[in-house]
Design a protein around this nucleic acid. Structure first.
Lengths: 265, 265
DNA sequence: ACCTGAACACCGTTCAAGT
DNA sequence: ACCTGAACACCGTTCAAGT
């Protein structure tokens, strides 16, 4: 219905002789926002955020860089769109009774996997509120899961933010650790070893704690850090942190519905 | 000794007539790393990170932009130095018995105040490990405070990271919320109102949780968010999250000293 | 309506040359 | 030893002009 609008029915499909159609499809697909955003993500994955300039992007699309501004406003808006596109890949489970904490972890691990799969997307995410269509959808599903754990409204509202901030920051630090020219696991370990040596070499009178904890500080790998942080935050959430705390400005009770029973599914 | 090298002793200090010395001191103070970093922080405070270019900085110092590279390596190293300078202002309390949680909060509030006092420093901090002299000093004092709470080594080592990441991310989101041209409290409230209206207008069948929580989501101001997050993380830490968890790779037991009793002071 | 070329006002970094 | 000018290889964004 919608798709056929403006597409006049042809009397017959006249095939284009193969020698007129060098390889495949129209030689220059028309520019569109989708094509721009897809290509931008491709550059990001392959070369990182610093390589994603409007000029580089235009070159990839075989057009002039000024042409992009007919479809995306500016670079910052482009990054918004790329971020929202990537959020498609995040899996947020429907609540199942008795598996709350595990499901929250699954959600966070999924977000982390997406960040690690797309170079520098964590850098884009860190100072952005995800208000695109997929971001909104993700917020809804996140709230649904968090409330299924019985969190009071304020904690559910803030908990999602805190968790996603945590995941983003942790992914950021992991990828910046691996930044200098495609560093592999090996080189990450080498840096840890160097740091360990440095901390151990500090004057123990002035730095007793750094010397004592040099081991634990440098031996925490990214996976362990992530799981530890996750446990800390979830433990804090179930503890119902700051229960009934009130800073006295009365601003946080705009909506105080009575029956906020946990959603079943 | 070192300072007088190459400075031939003058027979007498001949005073320069005042009309030859227009205002004060040598008209062009010699460039130094300290002067460069101080000036950089001044530009940051007044105009933000995007305004802090090597050229703008050189102009402020009345020199050519290429001259800076004799003292700082590159822009990224300059930002390292600015960050470390700012860390001077963070206050980390010496542990006092019975006040652990409150003191951890004081430390985090101090860090937050520093971020809010220096525009865009949170943006600099977010993807940097503070390994400058003040960063190392801060780590030592942080570990000292955290261990005073009786946290086991791994948790103390990671807890400081988690807390400072949290404070940084929260400061970042607060200042990016206020980004668009010196926005004051009023405009922040206006945005919250707009978002509240938007969330309330969503189709309730598809977005029941966003509609229900529109109030709590938009009424959390920065201070409340911060205190909430702080309570969640601290609660998670005292819960001793992931006690004895082991991912089986055996990499995190490089140093396993027996007597890790909490430090008294 | 969409795309282009050219221009504007910037960047960080390097390096030979000066003092 | 320190500083400079000039150059290199880039940026994002705007806009009049084309088709």
């Amino acid at each position: 219905m919608l798709r056929s609008e403006g597409r006049r029915p042809m009397p017959e499909e006249i095939p284009v002789p193969p020698w007129r159609r060098p390889k495949k499809a129209p030689p220059r697909m028309p520019l569109s926002q989708d094509r721009i955003v897809d290509t931008a993500l491709g550059i990001l994955d392959a070369e990182g955020l610093d390589a994603l300039s409007m000029r580089r992007l235009a070159q990839e699309l075989k057009t002039g860089h000024a042409s992009l501004y007919a479809h995306v406003g500016n670079r910052d808006e482009l990054l918004d769109l790329v971020f929202d596109l990537v959020l498609t890949e995040v899996e947020i489970p429907d609540p199942e009774p008795g598996r709350w904490a595990e499901q929250v972890k699954e959600m966070c691990r999924s977000l982390r996997r997406v960040f690690l799969a797309h170079r520098d997307v964590a850098r884009i995410a860190i100072d952005r509120v995800p208000l695109g269509p997929n971001g909104i959808m993700g917020m809804e599903r996140t709230l649904n899961l968090l409330r299924a754990g019985g969190l009071r409204d304020e904690l559910a509202a803030y908990g999602g933010d805190l968790l996603s901030t945590f995941v983003t920051a942790e992914a950021l630090e992991q990828s910046s650790r691996n930044s200098g020219a495609e560093q592999n696991q090996e080189q990450a370990g080498m840096f840890a070893d160097q740091l360990h040596g440095y901390l151990k070499s500090l004057p123990p009178a002035q730095f007793p704690n750094l010397v004592h904890l040099a081991g634990p500080i440098t031996s925490l790998d990214s996976d362990r850090r992530f799981e530890l942080g996750l446990e800390i935050i979830i433990a804090g959430l179930v503890a119902g942190a700051g229960e009934g705390a009130d800073d006295g400005d009365g601003a946080d009770d705009r909506v105080r519905t009575a029956g906020s029973t946990p959603a079943g599914s």
